[in-house]
Amino acid sequence: MTAALIAALVTGAALFGVGLYGALSQTNLVMIMMGVELILAGALVNLAAFWRFLHPGAYAGQMFVLIVMTVMALEMAVGFGVATARFRAKGSVEMEEAGELKG
């Protein structure tokens, strides 16, 4: 039984690692968002696994998963809003060309 939990957590960790790599290595805003989505997906897997295998009576765990899904949708909405604005203004959503956004 613990094996199932570990399998899920390992998946979560791997998704987190892949997502982190993607978010850091990609030059394009949309691709970076994909990396962030994968990181959040890793979190989702972990949360669901914790709920199922450790506290199936506490529905706040499932609630948490719902909230993370909401955050994913939020990230998409805001990200695409920003991407559209950037693209309109600069014709590019490449990070290499967003130098003026540096502090």
Partner: peptide, 22 residues
């Protein structure tokens, strides 16, 4: 030449989308 992106100046693989779409 705007200066903020000096670190890519020698990066021959980089293609500017600003330039392409301009």
């Amino acid at each position: 030449d705007h200066g903020a992106m000096d670190h890519v100046a020698g990066h021959s693989t980089f293609m500017s989308m600003v330039a392409v779409t301009r």
